[in-house]
Design a binder for these strands. Structure first.
Length: 462
RNA sequence: UCCCGGGUAGCUCAGUUGGCAGAGCAGGUGGCUGUUAACCACCCUGUCGGGGGUUCGAGUCCCUCCCCGGGAGCCA
């Protein structure tokens, strides 16, 4: 008999059929004459209730079917006479693959704190909460591809190991095969990376953007979706040392096109997740009361507010709120400022554009005013910055001047300048932190709870 | 990295003025013919984060280190 996933079992047309499911026991409720087992297999938020009569041989095996054990059950699907579930399976046979000793299995029938579950990353996907989060994560990931593929973007694979360390995007992890006990030194006493594997110092990528640019300047519209690494000592609920980033890049596009793309993208993802993740969203809402399917459906229909950095500063200066950090033109927006704008003023997603050039990266296109750059940040309530993007500087002379001003060495970036020498054109793109998106959609407050194996300072246990 | 708050049973947490280390849940045993984080009865559960100090006596006070959480900065 073919094994079915629980998500496929629970339907009217299976009533009366003899079926076969595999899964892990969530709870066991025993009486004298019968017992109930609730199993899940990860395919859906729903569980399947198994009814085992004391006449079936399986009843004698129930002492081995404790919470956490892996079993296969064969039986008849039928409508459940009791409240709480529509269907149940009357079991004729149970095969026990692996027991879970109740005294030592860490997951109980009762709820656990997210902090405790973080200590058992290998078992937490078996819980309702993490099952929901990781299924939603999958819906979002596949929807990312669906969005870009349907619009003619090519998925490109930018390198994970890179030699470019000059993007100013943060501290990097060094990749080396040198003997750390006895590394070669040069005359100055520094480690001699010319003797390292690549003949020079290499790092884990902090962004695929620069490479995405040259692919956009040949393939037209591209996007990356891959792991990204930052070695900052950040201990917050919205930073990881290893995270997944999505970076579309478009040739023949300006900041307006970029803003439009980011908005369409975000709204598309909100819509998809309400369509495909209804059960998961409903569970998380009932459990945590942070965001609902209705909220996301509304977001999918809502245009983003637009405001320039200069207007944002005016708005903040006019605020009755007292901020910890002073508001002044030229200073970056602090978390509290962003939160005021999204949560209090706009009450929804917001795109802030045209930041002062001093607080943004060298590759962002200089505006005609000479003071600001064609940058945009998409801010959402609670999570804050979720997308950062810009129109790229396509003018060779302006870019060279900006690199000189900001102290970016040219040696390793000749290829990047070449793109401005040969067939340069306006182009734009953005980066979206995938985990922050998952955080927003699930309502999880800590980013470490939306990725299976979080990497953060002193955190690499699984 | 900085600022707060924590660390007591497998889990969640209480522990008063320094004076016998507790509760609920989980687990075990028994009961129960439709349970739903089942229910009822009984039983079991400790390196009070580590080290040092004060004291007749420290979970409690002091010093120190480690770990966890929240906030800030950095950013996506």
């Amino acid at each position: 008999m073919e094994r079915l996933l629980i998500k496929d079992v629970l339907s009217e047309e299976n009533i009366g059929k003899s079926l076969n499911v595999c899964g892990w026991v969530r709870t066991k409720r025993e009486s004298k004459g019968f017992a109930f087992l609730v199993v899940s297999d990860g395919s859906t938020q729903d569980t399947l209730q198994l009814l085992i009569n004391n006449e079936t041989p399986a009843f004698q095996e129930l002492y081995r079917c404790n919470t956490g054990s892996a079993i296969q059950a064969t039986g008849l699907l039928r409508e459940s006479p009791a409240k709480g579930q529509k269907f149940e399976m009357e079991v004729s046979e149970i095969i026990i693959f692996g027991e879970a000793e109740p005294e030592t299995y860490p997951l109980q029938k009762k709820g656990h704190t997210l902090e405790f579950l973080r200590e058992i990353s290998h078992l937490r996907p078996r819980t309702n909460t993490f099952g929901a989060v990781f299924r939603l994560r999958n819906i979002l990931a596949s929807s990312v591809h669906e969005f870009f593929q349907s619009r003619g973007f090519l998925w490109i694979h930018t390198p994970i190991i890179t030699a470019s360390d000059c993007e100013g995007a943060g501290d990097l992890f060094t990749v080396t095969s040198l003997d750390l006990h006895n590394p070669p030194k040069n005359d100055g006493g520094d480690i001699d990376f010319s003797q390292d594997f690549f003949g020079r110092r290499a790092y884990l990528t902090v962004s695929g953007q620069l490479e995405a640019e040259f692919l956009a300047m040949s393939l037209g519209k591209v996007y990356t979706f891959g792991p990204t690494f930052r070695a900052e000592n950040s201990n917050t609920t919205r930073h990881l040392s290893e995270f997944w980033m999505i970076e579309p890049e478009m040739a023949f596009a300006d900041l307006r096109d970029d803003m439009k793309l980011s908005e369409d993208f975000f709204r598309f993802l909100c819509r998809k997740v309400t369509e495909k993740g209804e059960k998961e969203l409903a569970f998380l809402e009932s459990q945590y009361k942070r965001i609902s399917c209705e909220d996301l459906a509304r977001l999918a229909e809502t245009s983003f507010a637009h405001i320039s950095y200069t207007e944002a500063i005016k708005e903040l200066k006019a605020a009755k709120e007292s901020f910890e950090f002073p508001v002044s033109w030229g200073a970056d927006l602090q978390s509290e400022h962003e939160r005021y704008l999204t949560d209090k003023v706009i009450k929804g997603p917001l795109i802030v554009t045209d930041y002062p050039k001093e607080i943004k990266a060298f590759y962002m296109r200089l505006n005609p005013d000479g003071e600001t750059v064609a940058a945009m940040d998409v801010l959402v309530p609670k999570v804050g910055e979720i997308i950062g993007g810009s129109q790229r500087e396509e003018r060779l002379d302006v870019l060279e001047k900006r690199m000189k001003q900001t102290g970016i060495p040219r040696e390793n970036l000749q290829w990047y300048l070449d793109l401005r020498r040969f067939g340069s054109a306006p182009h734009a793109g953005f980066g979206l932190g995938f985990e922050r998106l998952v955080q927003y959609v699930t309502g999880m407050l800590n980013i470490r709870d939306v990725i299976p194996c979080p990497r953060a300072p002193r955190t690499i246990g699984f």
